[in-house]
Amino acid sequence: MSTPTPTKVSPKRNRSSGANPLGAWFNQQTNAVKFSMERLWFNPLSTWITLAAIAIALSLPTSLHLLLKNLQTLTADKREVPTISLFLKQNVAEQHAKDLAELVSGLPEVENVNVVTKDEALAKFSKITGFAKTLETLTDNPLPNVLVITPRLNLLGDMNLDAEGFSAKLKKYPEVDDVQIDVEWIQRLRAILSIAERIVVVVGVLLGLTVLLVVGNTIRLDIENRKDEIRVTRLIGATNSYIRRPFIYGGIWFGLFGGILSLVIVHLALLFLVKPVGELADLYGSTFTLSGVDVLMTLEILAASSLLGIIGAWLAVGRYLWQDEQAA
Protein backbone atom coordinates (compact mmCIF):
# COMPACT_ATOMS: atom_id res chain seq x y z
CA MET A 1 0.00 0.00 0.00
CA SER A 2 1.29 3.40 -0.83
CA THR A 3 1.77 6.16 1.64
CA PRO A 4 -0.89 8.80 1.58
CA THR A 5 0.32 12.24 0.64
CA PRO A 6 -0.74 14.75 3.28
CA THR A 7 -1.67 17.31 0.66
CA LYS A 8 -4.45 15.11 -0.57
CA VAL A 9 -6.34 15.04 2.67
CA SER A 10 -6.85 18.49 4.04
CA PRO A 11 -7.30 18.60 7.81
CA LYS A 12 -10.10 21.09 7.37
CA ARG A 13 -12.11 18.43 5.54
CA ASN A 14 -13.85 20.79 3.29
CA ARG A 15 -16.71 18.87 1.70
CA SER A 16 -18.33 21.28 -0.68
CA SER A 17 -15.07 21.51 -2.68
CA GLY A 18 -16.63 24.18 -4.85
CA ALA A 19 -18.83 21.86 -6.90
CA ASN A 20 -21.76 23.67 -8.43
CA PRO A 21 -25.07 22.38 -7.04
CA LEU A 22 -26.83 22.21 -10.40
CA GLY A 23 -24.07 20.10 -11.89
CA ALA A 24 -24.14 17.83 -8.84
CA TRP A 25 -27.90 17.48 -9.08
CA PHE A 26 -27.60 16.68 -12.76
CA ASN A 27 -24.90 14.16 -12.00
CA GLN A 28 -27.09 12.41 -9.43
CA GLN A 29 -30.01 12.33 -11.86
CA THR A 30 -28.00 10.91 -14.75
CA ASN A 31 -26.57 8.28 -12.45
CA ALA A 32 -30.03 7.32 -11.26
CA VAL A 33 -31.23 7.15 -14.87
CA LYS A 34 -28.27 5.01 -15.83
CA PHE A 35 -28.63 2.58 -12.95
CA SER A 36 -32.39 2.28 -13.30
CA MET A 37 -31.96 1.46 -17.00
CA GLU A 38 -29.30 -1.11 -16.20
CA ARG A 39 -31.65 -2.75 -13.74
CA LEU A 40 -34.17 -3.32 -16.52
CA TRP A 41 -31.53 -5.05 -18.64
CA PHE A 42 -30.21 -6.94 -15.66
CA ASN A 43 -33.36 -9.05 -15.46
CA PRO A 44 -34.79 -9.07 -18.99
CA LEU A 45 -37.38 -11.80 -18.45
CA SER A 46 -39.13 -10.19 -15.52
CA THR A 47 -38.84 -6.81 -17.23
CA TRP A 48 -40.60 -8.11 -20.33
CA ILE A 49 -43.29 -9.84 -18.32
CA THR A 50 -43.97 -6.64 -16.43
CA LEU A 51 -43.98 -4.58 -19.61
CA ALA A 52 -46.34 -7.04 -21.30
CA ALA A 53 -48.73 -6.95 -18.34
CA ILE A 54 -48.71 -3.15 -18.39
CA ALA A 55 -49.10 -3.01 -22.18
CA ILE A 56 -52.06 -5.38 -22.21
CA ALA A 57 -53.71 -3.54 -19.35
CA LEU A 58 -53.27 -0.26 -21.21
CA SER A 59 -54.23 -1.46 -24.69
CA LEU A 60 -57.66 -2.64 -23.63
CA PRO A 61 -59.08 0.75 -22.61
CA THR A 62 -57.20 2.39 -25.47
CA SER A 63 -58.79 0.16 -28.06
CA LEU A 64 -62.22 0.48 -26.46
CA HIS A 65 -61.81 4.21 -26.58
CA LEU A 66 -60.82 4.03 -30.23
CA LEU A 67 -63.81 1.88 -31.06
CA LEU A 68 -66.06 4.41 -29.41
CA LYS A 69 -64.39 7.32 -31.13
CA ASN A 70 -64.91 5.62 -34.48
CA LEU A 71 -68.57 4.96 -33.77
CA GLN A 72 -68.97 8.58 -32.78
CA THR A 73 -67.41 9.87 -35.99
CA LEU A 74 -69.75 7.55 -37.81
CA THR A 75 -72.80 9.15 -36.23
CA ALA A 76 -71.41 12.66 -36.52
CA ASP A 77 -70.61 12.26 -40.19
CA LYS A 78 -72.66 14.75 -42.19
CA ARG A 79 -73.13 12.37 -45.08
CA GLU A 80 -74.58 9.83 -42.73
CA VAL A 81 -77.06 12.21 -41.16
CA PRO A 82 -80.47 10.60 -41.03
CA THR A 83 -83.47 12.31 -42.49
CA ILE A 84 -87.13 12.81 -41.69
CA SER A 85 -89.51 11.71 -44.36
CA LEU A 86 -92.79 13.52 -44.64
CA PHE A 87 -95.34 11.52 -46.65
CA LEU A 88 -97.98 13.77 -48.04
CA LYS A 89 -101.54 12.78 -48.73
CA GLN A 90 -102.36 11.38 -52.18
CA ASN A 91 -104.51 14.34 -53.15
CA VAL A 92 -101.78 16.90 -52.55
CA ALA A 93 -100.54 18.29 -55.81
CA GLU A 94 -96.89 18.65 -56.70
CA GLN A 95 -96.94 22.46 -56.59
CA HIS A 96 -98.65 22.34 -53.23
CA ALA A 97 -95.95 20.02 -51.96
CA LYS A 98 -93.29 22.47 -53.08
CA ASP A 99 -95.03 25.30 -51.25
CA LEU A 100 -95.17 23.21 -48.16
CA ALA A 101 -91.46 22.45 -48.51
CA GLU A 102 -90.82 26.19 -48.53
CA LEU A 103 -92.82 26.52 -45.36
CA VAL A 104 -91.16 23.63 -43.55
CA SER A 105 -87.66 24.78 -44.43
CA GLY A 106 -88.38 27.91 -42.43
CA LEU A 107 -88.64 25.90 -39.20
CA PRO A 108 -85.72 26.30 -36.77
CA GLU A 109 -85.16 22.54 -36.47
CA VAL A 110 -84.72 22.12 -40.22
CA GLU A 111 -81.50 22.35 -42.17
CA ASN A 112 -82.98 21.84 -45.63
CA VAL A 113 -85.88 20.20 -47.37
CA ASN A 114 -85.79 18.13 -50.49
CA VAL A 115 -88.94 17.40 -52.44
CA VAL A 116 -89.30 13.96 -54.00
CA THR A 117 -92.29 14.07 -56.30
CA LYS A 118 -94.41 11.01 -56.86
CA ASP A 119 -93.15 10.69 -60.43
CA GLU A 120 -89.53 10.80 -59.38
CA ALA A 121 -90.24 8.28 -56.66
CA LEU A 122 -91.94 5.92 -59.06
CA ALA A 123 -89.11 6.16 -61.57
CA LYS A 124 -86.56 5.42 -58.86
CA PHE A 125 -88.64 2.63 -57.41
CA SER A 126 -89.06 0.85 -60.70
CA LYS A 127 -85.38 1.23 -61.42
CA ILE A 128 -84.24 -0.20 -58.10
CA THR A 129 -86.69 -2.98 -57.63
CA GLY A 130 -87.06 -4.25 -61.13
CA PHE A 131 -90.83 -4.04 -60.80
CA ALA A 132 -90.90 -1.83 -63.90
CA LYS A 133 -93.21 -4.19 -65.83
CA THR A 134 -95.60 -4.57 -62.98
CA LEU A 135 -95.68 -0.89 -62.35
CA GLU A 136 -96.50 -0.17 -65.94
CA THR A 137 -99.78 -1.99 -65.50
CA LEU A 138 -100.84 0.51 -62.90
CA THR A 139 -103.04 3.31 -64.13
CA ASP A 140 -102.32 5.57 -61.21
CA ASN A 141 -99.11 6.28 -59.43
CA PRO A 142 -99.71 4.86 -55.94
CA LEU A 143 -96.81 6.74 -54.44
CA PRO A 144 -97.26 10.00 -52.56
CA ASN A 145 -95.19 13.15 -52.80
CA VAL A 146 -92.52 13.13 -50.13
CA LEU A 147 -90.58 15.86 -48.39
CA VAL A 148 -87.19 14.68 -47.20
CA ILE A 149 -86.13 16.87 -44.29
CA THR A 150 -82.57 17.08 -43.09
CA PRO A 151 -82.67 18.20 -39.47
CA ARG A 152 -80.07 20.53 -38.06
CA LEU A 153 -76.99 18.74 -36.75
CA ASN A 154 -76.93 20.52 -33.44
CA LEU A 155 -80.38 19.15 -32.90
CA LEU A 156 -79.06 15.66 -33.26
CA GLY A 157 -76.38 16.23 -30.69
CA ASP A 158 -79.01 17.29 -28.24
CA MET A 159 -80.16 14.19 -26.45
CA ASN A 160 -83.23 15.98 -25.21
CA LEU A 161 -84.44 16.73 -28.69
CA ASP A 162 -88.09 15.90 -28.65
CA ALA A 163 -88.31 13.81 -31.76
CA GLU A 164 -91.86 12.87 -30.93
CA GLY A 165 -92.80 16.50 -30.43
CA PHE A 166 -91.24 17.52 -33.70
CA SER A 167 -92.97 14.73 -35.53
CA ALA A 168 -96.29 15.74 -33.93
CA LYS A 169 -95.68 19.30 -35.05
CA LEU A 170 -95.13 18.16 -38.61
CA LYS A 171 -98.18 15.95 -38.49
CA LYS A 172 -100.36 18.93 -37.78
CA TYR A 173 -100.05 20.13 -41.35
CA PRO A 174 -103.24 19.07 -43.06
CA GLU A 175 -101.34 17.84 -46.13
CA VAL A 176 -99.22 15.40 -44.13
CA ASP A 177 -100.22 11.81 -44.10
CA ASP A 178 -97.36 10.22 -42.16
CA VAL A 179 -93.99 11.15 -40.64
CA GLN A 180 -91.08 8.76 -40.55
CA ILE A 181 -88.23 9.76 -38.36
CA ASP A 182 -84.79 8.23 -38.76
CA VAL A 183 -83.47 10.43 -36.00
CA GLU A 184 -84.60 8.01 -33.35
CA TRP A 185 -82.13 5.29 -34.12
CA ILE A 186 -79.25 7.72 -34.01
CA GLN A 187 -80.43 9.09 -30.72
CA ARG A 188 -80.63 5.60 -29.36
CA LEU A 189 -77.17 4.88 -30.66
CA ARG A 190 -75.89 8.01 -29.00
CA ALA A 191 -77.49 6.96 -25.74
CA ILE A 192 -75.80 3.59 -26.03
CA LEU A 193 -72.51 5.28 -26.86
CA SER A 194 -72.71 7.50 -23.83
CA ILE A 195 -73.17 4.39 -21.70
CA ALA A 196 -70.23 2.80 -23.50
CA GLU A 197 -68.23 5.94 -22.78
CA ARG A 198 -68.84 5.46 -19.08
CA ILE A 199 -67.88 1.82 -19.40
CA VAL A 200 -64.61 2.85 -21.04
CA VAL A 201 -63.96 5.21 -18.13
CA VAL A 202 -64.65 2.46 -15.60
CA VAL A 203 -62.50 -0.06 -17.48
CA GLY A 204 -59.81 2.58 -17.89
CA VAL A 205 -59.75 3.34 -14.18
CA LEU A 206 -59.66 -0.34 -13.23
CA LEU A 207 -56.90 -1.16 -15.67
CA GLY A 208 -55.03 1.98 -14.66
CA LEU A 209 -55.10 0.62 -11.12
CA THR A 210 -53.81 -2.66 -12.50
CA VAL A 211 -50.85 -0.84 -14.03
CA LEU A 212 -50.28 0.86 -10.70
CA LEU A 213 -50.27 -2.50 -8.91
CA VAL A 214 -48.05 -4.18 -11.49
CA VAL A 215 -45.46 -1.42 -11.35
CA GLY A 216 -45.75 -1.17 -7.57
CA ASN A 217 -45.26 -4.89 -7.14
CA THR A 218 -42.31 -5.04 -9.53
CA ILE A 219 -40.63 -2.15 -7.76
CA ARG A 220 -41.39 -3.76 -4.42
CA LEU A 221 -39.60 -6.93 -5.52
CA ASP A 222 -36.74 -4.82 -6.81
CA ILE A 223 -36.49 -3.16 -3.41
CA GLU A 224 -36.50 -6.56 -1.68
CA ASN A 225 -33.59 -7.61 -3.89
CA ARG A 226 -31.73 -4.43 -3.07
CA LYS A 227 -32.28 -4.22 0.66
CA ASP A 228 -28.59 -4.71 1.36
CA GLU A 229 -27.68 -2.04 -1.09
CA ILE A 230 -30.16 0.37 0.43
CA ARG A 231 -28.78 -0.39 3.87
CA VAL A 232 -25.24 0.35 2.69
CA THR A 233 -26.19 3.58 0.94
CA ARG A 234 -28.12 4.66 4.01
CA LEU A 235 -25.06 4.03 6.10
CA ILE A 236 -22.94 6.28 3.94
CA GLY A 237 -25.43 9.09 4.25
CA ALA A 238 -28.02 8.58 1.54
CA THR A 239 -31.17 10.60 2.00
CA ASN A 240 -34.60 9.13 1.39
CA SER A 241 -34.85 10.98 -1.89
CA TYR A 242 -31.53 9.53 -3.03
CA ILE A 243 -32.77 6.03 -2.22
CA ARG A 244 -36.10 6.71 -3.87
CA ARG A 245 -34.72 8.19 -7.07
CA PRO A 246 -33.61 5.12 -9.07
CA PHE A 247 -36.84 3.30 -8.21
CA ILE A 248 -38.92 6.24 -9.38
CA TYR A 249 -37.01 6.25 -12.64
CA GLY A 250 -37.61 2.52 -12.83
CA GLY A 251 -41.33 3.23 -12.48
CA ILE A 252 -41.14 5.81 -15.27
CA TRP A 253 -39.45 3.33 -17.60
CA PHE A 254 -42.00 0.63 -16.86
CA GLY A 255 -44.83 3.08 -17.49
CA LEU A 256 -43.30 4.62 -20.58
CA PHE A 257 -42.13 1.42 -22.28
CA GLY A 258 -45.35 -0.34 -21.28
CA GLY A 259 -47.25 2.53 -22.89
CA ILE A 260 -45.20 2.30 -26.08
CA LEU A 261 -45.76 -1.44 -26.21
CA SER A 262 -49.50 -0.96 -25.73
CA LEU A 263 -49.56 1.49 -28.66
CA VAL A 264 -47.78 -1.11 -30.78
CA ILE A 265 -50.45 -3.64 -29.81
CA VAL A 266 -53.27 -1.22 -30.65
CA HIS A 267 -51.69 -0.35 -34.00
CA LEU A 268 -51.31 -4.00 -34.91
CA ALA A 269 -54.93 -4.61 -33.98
CA LEU A 270 -55.99 -1.68 -36.17
CA LEU A 271 -53.98 -2.98 -39.11
CA PHE A 272 -55.71 -6.28 -38.60
CA LEU A 273 -59.13 -4.61 -38.72
CA VAL A 274 -58.71 -1.92 -41.33
CA LYS A 275 -59.43 -4.10 -44.37
CA PRO A 276 -62.61 -5.85 -43.21
CA VAL A 277 -63.96 -2.55 -41.85
CA GLY A 278 -63.35 -0.91 -45.20
CA GLU A 279 -65.20 -3.74 -46.93
CA LEU A 280 -68.09 -3.45 -44.54
CA ALA A 281 -68.28 0.31 -45.09
CA ASP A 282 -68.30 -0.30 -48.84
CA LEU A 283 -71.26 -2.62 -48.47
CA TYR A 284 -73.12 0.18 -46.74
CA GLY A 285 -72.04 2.65 -49.42
CA SER A 286 -70.11 4.61 -46.85
CA THR A 287 -66.72 6.21 -47.17
CA PHE A 288 -66.03 5.57 -43.50
CA THR A 289 -62.44 4.69 -42.65
CA LEU A 290 -61.08 3.51 -39.35
CA SER A 291 -59.31 6.31 -37.53
CA GLY A 292 -56.30 5.35 -35.45
CA VAL A 293 -54.35 6.83 -32.57
CA ASP A 294 -53.35 10.41 -33.37
CA VAL A 295 -50.28 12.22 -32.06
CA LEU A 296 -52.11 13.93 -29.21
CA MET A 297 -53.63 10.68 -28.02
CA THR A 298 -50.25 8.95 -28.27
CA LEU A 299 -48.72 11.61 -26.05
CA GLU A 300 -51.63 11.42 -23.65
CA ILE A 301 -51.29 7.66 -23.32
CA LEU A 302 -47.54 7.84 -22.77
CA ALA A 303 -47.88 10.64 -20.24
CA ALA A 304 -50.62 8.78 -18.38
CA SER A 305 -48.72 5.50 -18.34
CA SER A 306 -45.51 7.19 -17.16
CA LEU A 307 -47.46 8.94 -14.45
CA LEU A 308 -48.98 5.64 -13.36
CA GLY A 309 -45.47 4.20 -13.26
CA ILE A 310 -44.24 7.05 -11.09
CA ILE A 311 -47.17 6.72 -8.70
CA GLY A 312 -46.79 2.94 -8.47
CA ALA A 313 -43.07 3.23 -7.77
CA TRP A 314 -43.62 6.06 -5.32
CA LEU A 315 -46.13 4.02 -3.34
CA ALA A 316 -43.83 1.00 -3.23
CA VAL A 317 -40.76 2.94 -2.14
CA GLY A 318 -42.77 5.08 0.23
CA ARG A 319 -44.12 2.00 1.94
CA TYR A 320 -40.63 0.54 2.25
CA LEU A 321 -39.11 3.75 3.59
CA TRP A 322 -41.94 4.08 6.08
CA GLN A 323 -41.45 0.51 7.31
CA ASP A 324 -37.73 1.04 7.47
CA GLU A 325 -38.19 4.13 9.56
CA GLN A 326 -40.53 2.31 11.94
CA ALA A 327 -37.94 -0.41 12.38
CA ALA A 328 -35.11 2.02 13.08
Binding site: S2, K8, G23, N27, N31
Partner: peptide, 22 residues
Protein backbone atom coordinates in the same frame (compact mmCIF):
# COMPACT_ATOMS: atom_id res chain seq x y z
CA UNK B 1 -22.36 10.81 -5.47
CA UNK B 2 -24.68 10.76 -2.48
CA UNK B 3 -23.23 13.96 -1.09
CA UNK B 4 -23.81 15.57 -4.46
CA UNK B 5 -20.35 15.97 -5.91
CA UNK B 6 -19.70 16.68 -9.57
CA UNK B 7 -18.32 13.98 -11.85
CA UNK B 8 -14.90 15.58 -12.26
CA UNK B 9 -14.36 15.90 -8.51
CA UNK B 10 -15.59 12.36 -7.99
CA UNK B 11 -13.09 11.04 -10.51
CA UNK B 12 -10.23 12.86 -8.81
CA UNK B 13 -11.18 11.79 -5.28
CA UNK B 14 -11.82 8.17 -6.18
CA UNK B 15 -8.44 7.93 -7.84
CA UNK B 16 -6.79 9.43 -4.78
CA UNK B 17 -8.60 6.92 -2.54
CA UNK B 18 -7.69 4.00 -4.82
CA UNK B 19 -4.11 5.18 -4.78
CA UNK B 20 -4.11 5.24 -0.99
CA UNK B 21 -5.21 1.62 -0.68
CA UNK B 22 -2.97 0.57 -3.57
Amino acid sequence: LISGMGQADIRRRVHAALDKVG
